[in-house]
């Protein structure tokens, strides 16, 4: 995953989390909260893969 894509996923996830915090409504909380969490987790996974690839490139792994 490209770093720019990771950045977009994580910022989008944070934005959804922000909206869920601003509007305490059941639907918004459940939908935005779940989707926001998912996007951040995808971003984090992408970052871990990026780090692993970098470590492999530098023959640390």
């Amino acid at each position: 995953m490209k770093p720019v894509l990771i950045l977009l996923f994580e910022l989008a996830g944070l934005l959804l989390g922000l909206l869920a915090l601003l509007f305490p409504n059941a639907t918004i909380i459940f939908v935005f909260f779940s989707l926001g969490n998912l996007l951040i987790v995808i971003g984090l996974a992408g970052y871990v893969i990026l780090v692993l690839k970098d470590l492999k490139k530098h023959k640390v792994l």
């Binding site: 950045l7 996830g13 989390g17 869920a20 915090l21 909260f33 926001g36 969490n37 984090l44 970052y47």
Partner: peptide
């Protein structure tokens, strides 16, 4: 910091707040 620590920290903090709100 930008891709790992901050998002993970925010994820945990916002989840705790939202679970409290529920």
């Amino acid at each position: 910091v930008a891709f790992g620590i901050l998002p993970l920290g925010l994820l945990l903090v916002s989840d705790a707040i939202l679970l409290g709100q529920m």
